[in-house]
Design a protein around this nucleic acid. Structure first.
Lengths: 107, 107
DNA sequence: AAGTTATATAACATATCCGTTAAATGAATA
DNA sequence: TATTCATTTAACGGATATGTTATATAACTT
C-alpha cells in the first residue's frame, strides 16, 4: 500500500469523513469524537487507527484522554493527484473533441 | 453508499488508478486494458465494474469489443471535497496558530 | 490500595474484496 | 450453422473490513 491508497481508502468511509469534519472544527478526544455516532467506541477507535495510518490525523496522550487533531498535509498528495488527473482528462477530451470536429469539417 | 464513497473507494486501488491513467491516453477495449496487467482478464472486468459504478468510466459495445472511456466529471465532487477540506483545515490551523501566538504575547 | 474513567485490544461474526478457473453469452467469421 | 474471439458471469477461496461484546491497560481520584 502506498500513500495514495491509504488516503483514498481512508476517505472512502462516511464515518471517517465525518470524524475529519468534526476535527476540522477543532481538536477532540476519542470520547468526544465517538459520542455523536451510533456505533461503539471500539469501532471509532479503529476508524481512528485507519485515519492515523493515512497520516490524516495524529494524537497525543493528555492524562487519561487522547486528543486528536488533523494533519492537513496528508490531503496534499491526494489533492494533487486529483487535480492533475482532472485537468489532464479534461484536456485530453478537449483535444479529442477538437480532433473529431476537425475531422468532420472536410466532409 | 453515496457518490464520494464510490469515487474514493474506486481510487483507492492502484490497479484501478493505472487503468484510469491508461484511459487518459485514449479510449481502449477491455482486452487492451487487461493486457499490461499480471492479473486475469475477469479480474480486470471487475475493476472496470467498480470504476463504472463510480461513474469514472463508461463503455460502449463495438462489435465484439467493448470500448471504455473516461468520464472526467466524476472527479469533480471528489476534487471539490478535497480542495475544500484542504483549505478549510489549513485555515483552521492557521487561525489556531494565530490564536496561540496571540495568547502568548500578553505574558 | 481500590475504584473510576478513557481508551485500546482481543475474540468473534459477517460481509465485502480480490483473485482464481470454468462456464455462459454475444457478435463476427468460416 | 459451427467456430472463434471478446467479454461477462458463476463458483469458489482466502484476506481484509467493520461491527459487536468482553477484557485489558493506563492514568486519574479517593
Amino acid at each position: 500500500m502506498n500513500m495514495l491508497d491509504h488516503t483514498f481508502n481512508a476517505l472512502a468511509d462516511p464515518t471517517r469523513r465525518a470524524i475529519l469534519a468534526r476535527l476540522a472544527q477543532g481538536e477532540a478526544t476519542v470520547g468526544e469524537l465517538a459520542k455523536p455516532f451510533a456505533i461503539s467506541q471500539p469501532a471509532i477507535s479503529r476508524h481512528l487507527k485507519v485515519l492515523e495510518k493515512a497520516s490524516l490525523i495524529s494524537n497525543e496522550r493528555q492524562g487519561k484522554h487522547r486528543r486528536c487533531r488533523l494533519r492537513p498535509e496528508a490531503l496534499d498528495s491526494a489533492a494533487t493527484w486529483l487535480e492533475f488527473h482532472r485537468r489532464f482528462w479534461t484536456g485530453s477530451l478537449d483535444r479529442l473533441d477538437a480532433h473529431l470536429k476537425s475531422e468532420k469539417k472536410p466532409r
